[in-house]
Amino acid sequence: MTSAAPSSSLPDQPAEAGTRAPLVFGGVPEAEGFARVPITARDRVHFRVDRDLPLAEFRADLPDGVTVSHDEGEGLYRVDGPCGQGQVLADWIRAWCAGHDCTTVGLRAEAGVRRRAPRDLPPAFLDDLCRHYHPLSLKRLQRNASTVRLHVPDPDDLHQQVAEWILKAVGQYDETKGVPFGAFLATQLSKWVHDLGRNAHGRTAADTENRQQKAIAAFQAEHQRRPTERELAAYMGQSVATLRRNSQTVATLNGLRNLQSLDGGPDATEVLLPDSHEAPDQIMDEADQTLLSHALTAACASDPTAARGQRAAQPNVLGWATWYLTTWGGQTKTQVSADLGTSVRNMNVHADRVERALKDRLAELSE
């Protein structure tokens, strides 16, 4: 590995940075490496499906010059084609999926997306660049440690996530903007940490929590105490009723995060039941509810046999929320969709996964 200039943090490259020796990766200066594979524009179609897509067949049928990538963790497909072809590609994808008994979810076309493929960079250059920025990214993320631990508690998973973020930054970095890659990466890391919550619990709920926490922190810095409900509402320019409704959304989000059993092997938890010949009916009703709640939580837990990066390897929090809030919370799917900032169709995809697993769990309980 070619040695790179030492650095203790992601560089913001102040004016005097011009006197530093440039970073060299794989024998290629950093700026030159990105210039060799410039960022280009293309139209992109994003979509999910309600079942696994036959990816090899899908790739084989794609028109010439069109590529597809699949984010297994999010279940998201991205199809890239020439500029001006986004809507045509969207219609083609919708028709192809319909012909293969797949239903698209959240399909949208995006024009003029500027990206580069990391695999097109010189392998030694990309390898050294990732090795250099990986420890610096971990140090930069220390300020977001509490948020990161909520969503990526395992150290090995965190190292993998950081590596994925560096590759994502490589794909999005525009060398023509005059901003060093290190500064661009540092900025993007903060955004992507916030996206962890948005992806797991819904855009609206995560953004509401973020705004409330920022307002509380700003009020405390100004007055050296926590605000009252009325003070916080006034500080945020909201009515008390709106603040209370948003606070309930945040409370729901925090409750979902605190479901340790989703990530802690619920099958290992023993549920003690009274003898039905001696217990009154009320106790047995409560026992039935406990069994059902346990079965639901177990059905939403991550699959230990699934490969890392697959959707099944992550706890199905959105599926749990959909079932719990509509079954016991007295809410409709439309209300839950509005609270969590996600589509009803996306909720149905996650809820269907729960239903398939829950049927097996209930069948075991009835035996």
Rank of each mutant, 00 (worst) to 15 (best):
C300F: 03
W320L: 10
D285A: 09
D303W: 00
T290E: 11
T305D: 05
A295P: 13
D281I: 12
L292Y: 08
L292D: 11
P280L: 10
W323D: 11
D281L: 15
L296Y: 10
A313E: 02
L292K: 11
T290P: 12
D285H: 12
L318D: 03
L296H: 05
A295I: 15
D303S: 00
A301H: 03
W320I: 06
M284T: 12
G309H: 05
P304L: 02
A307E: 06
Q310H: 09
R308Q: 10
T322L: 07
A299D: 04
T297P: 15
W323C: 07
E278H: 09
G319H: 01
T290L: 10
L292C: 15
R308N: 08
H294F: 10
M284F: 07
A306Q: 01
T290R: 12
Q289I: 13
D288F: 10
L318W: 01
D288E: 11
Q310K: 07
N316F: 00
N316D: 02
A313I: 01
T290D: 13
T290C: 10
L291F: 11
A301K: 00
T322D: 08
Q289E: 12
R311E: 08
S302N: 07
A298Y: 05
N316V: 00
V317W: 02
W320M: 05
Q310F: 07
R308Y: 06
H277W: 14
T322M: 07
H277R: 15
Q289S: 13
A301N: 03
S302R: 05
G319I: 02
A307M: 05
Q289V: 12
D281M: 12
L296A: 12
A287K: 14
L296Q: 06
S302K: 06
R308P: 06
A287E: 11
L296P: 04
E286W: 13
P280K: 15
D303E: 01
A295R: 12
H277F: 14
C300H: 02
G319C: 02
L318C: 02
G309Y: 03
L292A: 08
T322A: 06
D303T: 00
C300I: 02
D285K: 15
T297Q: 15
H294Q: 07
D281Y: 15
A287D: 06
Q314L: 05
D288Y: 11
M284L: 09
A279R: 08
L291K: 10
V317F: 00
I283Q: 13
P280E: 13
G319A: 00
P304R: 04
A298T: 11
P315S: 00
R311Q: 08
A287C: 14
T290V: 08
T305E: 05
L291E: 12
N316L: 01
